[in-house]
Design a protein around this nucleic acid. Structure first.
Lengths: 201, 201
DNA sequence: TCAGGTTTGGACTTGCAGGTCCATTTTTAG
DNA sequence: CTAAAAATGGACCTGCAAGTCCAAACCTGA
């Protein structure tokens, strides 16, 4: 089903996705018209529909995919290397820094509500992202348990689930209130708590 | 600036808001047309613009207000009565139950992304909701500290901030993945942790 | 160099949803 | 009872943004 694109074609397609993603991040999903994307990426309507035959919906899905990947890419290699407390703190700082920098613009929040209903695939996409994210955290906890840095009786899965939820909520609150406090509180208290349990182990 | 509405007028206005809210909850903000609201509430376009001169934007804001109020109303009286562990657990159950029941439909998530950008007031509205919510939690923690059920050294503000974030994230994850696990994990682990600290106090 | 494809540009169509308007009915108040 | 104001119904307008179409430019390989 994959259409044949030349190298040039692939490049154009990628340019459109990246440009659309940027536009959406800056102005919000529902404020972005195809024309805006065209203007930004220097493309024509013909091209848009050439590379995304199903139109806006398909483009939005591609953007969501792209943005979802970015989220995890941005946390590498910290995320997949949670093997010591300094590493955990580095990851913590990375998260704070990143979300502080991008401020009120969350690429996925909008896409969740918007695309979520339109494209059935978008839901699965976000779910997949969350799943990968949580898996990485779980693995980090497990590793720390193997070295005795976290108490063995901690349920890694549940702890990771709670932490992921906290992070998502923290970001959500950053989005709506503009304050990073919640995210910080979640990360610091959670890490603190994971450490505390093992002090005696 | 408040226009003069008769009793009948107020009733109609309220009917529109409630109907629109329901419609939005069921089908999502961007899928709801004014006509849908008209059909559901048995009103005409004339009425819509009579009661909401600024059109859709004003209506959406009113809906957001209405929904925000509902969120807290739904948790009363549990939320403002977190004075014993059974009360905390009752609140926990209430949250789980409520969000489990409404499933994938969150009234505010959509409104956040959507209305957030359009109406400047919507942002403030959500912020206010979060603030009230968090304040209630903080007060609950403080009360438990006063009775010695929670350790005095716990920072009530931070703990409440983290918990609120966890709840929001838990709901968000319920929305995107369909699983309630995250919300449960947050609530249970948080409460467990608050209790643990004071066992010896 | 020529023939097949792919890529590109942009004019044109179309549907629809938000918003306007006014004529009619109902209510309120004096 | 009556006049002014509010409530209602629905026809109509309008703009805009998605999507269509096709012709021109371009690559690419034999």
């Amino acid at each position: 089903m994959t259409r044949a694109f030349t190298r040039k074609g692939e490049a154009t397609r990628a340019r459109i996705v990246v440009g659309a993603a940027a536009e959406i991040r800056e102005r919000g999903v529902d404020e972005v018209r195809l024309e805006d994307v065209m203007a930004r990426t220097g493309t024509s309507k013909g091209q848009l529909f050439h590379y995304f035959p199903d139109g806006k919906e398909e483009l939005l899905l591609a953007v969501a995919q792209h943005e979802a990947d970015q989220v995890l890419i941005d946390q590498e290699p910290m995320l997949s290397n949670l093997t010591s407390w300094p590493a955990w703190l580095a990851w913590r700082d990375r998260l704070i820094e990143r979300y502080l920098a991008q401020g009120v613009k969350c690429p996925l929040n909008g896409l969740l509500g918007q695309t979520g209903r339109r494209a059935p695939g978008a839901q699965a996409l976000v779910t997949g992202l969350m799943w990968r994210w949580q898996a990485a955290i779980t693995e980090g906890i497990r590793h720390m348990q193997s070295t005795g840095d976290i108490a063995a009786e901690v349920d890694a899965d549940r702890a990771a689930a709670a932490l992921l939820a906290g992070i998502q909520g923290g970001v959500l609150l950053l989005l709506s209130t503009g304050r990073i406090d919640h995210l910080e509180a979640v990360l610091d208290l959670t890490i603190e708590r994971l450490r505390a349990g093992a002090r005696t182990a």
